[in-house]
């Protein structure tokens, strides 16, 4: 199958793949084109493809109309703290499960697996009530709370820790290191690629989450990009150029991260499946 593909087959494959690629990026192209139009240009019948001249004012208008800086900061803080706590805690738990023998560890791992099986909406209302009782509605900690720990992370990292040899543990014990030191100094650095994968996942899911930030943080200056963008629609329902400019602003940070860490993204995802 991998060997000689004749040119004709290759051309057919390319044609199919290009059609797919066009379908994938067309919405983004349309988003960018619309973001540079006037309202009049965007509502021509039949639709006008290109703006006469690209209207950057749409960007400054929407930037002024909404607290985008707060959106970026809130999203950034949420992602930062979720990555910090969930990767550290998951790595600790995974190390214990993979390298230590102690009673209760199987029960713990069962809890991890159970959590992964249950659709997250069932946690939502109690988590909301918890945040409310703590008086944390409309704060950054409210955004972080559901992501403090991660069953998925514990599961994902297991594959990386399992691959690391047990002998390291014994060698270090003889050298007089305690278990925390063994974990922190020896295993943690070796699991780096797993940690990076988990961090990427955490960032992506936190960034895409819509319902949680929508219900806990209702004040505009406490919203994330995702939720803030959704609220933009309610206010500017008719002004698609500005809505699209807002959308472009909201997706740019992730696109930049994706371009930089592309390999990590793809490897990270490939490791989650199938085995």
């Amino acid at each position: 199958m991998h060997k000689k593909l004749n040119t004709k087959t290759k051309t057919i494959i390319h044609v199919i793949l290009i059609i797919g690629a066009v379908a994938m990026i067309l919405p983004f192209v349309w988003m960018i084109l619309t973001s540079g139009k006037t309202v009049a240009e965007s509502t021509m019948i039949p639709p006008q493809i290109l703006p006469d001249s690209f209207r950057w004012e749409n960007y400054s208008t929407v930037w002024d109309a909404l607290p985008f800086i707060s959106f970026f900061i809130n999203t950034g803080l949420m992602i930062f703290f979720r990555i910090l706590t969930s990767t550290l805690f998951s790595a600790m738990a995974t190390f214990a499960v993979a390298k230590l023998e102690f009673p209760g560890k199987n029960v713990f791992f069962m809890i991890v697996l159970t959590q992964m099986m249950i659709p997250p909406q069932i946690f939502l209302t109690p988590q909301y009530l918890l945040v409310q009782n703590l008086g944390l509605l409309n704060t950054v900690p409210a955004l972080v709370i559901p992501g403090l720990v991660s069953a998925f992370g514990t599961f994902l990292l297991r594959q990386f820790f399992m691959k690391l040899p047990d002998e390291l543990m014994e060698a270090a014990t003889i050298d007089g290191a305690n278990i925390w030191q063994i974990f922190y100094r020896i295993y943690l650095p070796l699991a780096k690629s797993g940690l990076v994968s988990l961090a990427i996942f955490t960032a992506l899911f936190a960034y895409k989450d819509l319902m949680w930030p929508l219900i806990v943080n209702m004040s505009q200056n406490k919203m994330t990009l995702s939720a803030g963008l959704a609220s933009l629609q309610g206010q500017y329902a008719t002004n698609y150029p500005e809505l699209m400019a807002g959308s472009v602003l909201a997706i740019i940070p992730m696109v930049i991260l994706y371009v930089i860490f592309q390999k990590r993204f793809i490897q990270g995802i490939a490791t989650t499946g199938g085995k």
């Binding site: 409310q132 009782n133 008086g135 509605l137 409309n138 929508l214 219900i215 209702m218 004040s219 505009q220 200056n221 609220s231 309610g234 206010q235």
Partner: peptide, 19 residues
């Protein structure tokens, strides 16, 4: 001055009233 979009304004006040 704190802006909360209409769709969430009343939910916010209701949950605020509880706490």
């Amino acid at each position: 001055v704190e802006v909360t979009p209409w769709d969430q304004y009343w939910t916010k006040l209701e949950s605020g009233a509880q706490g």
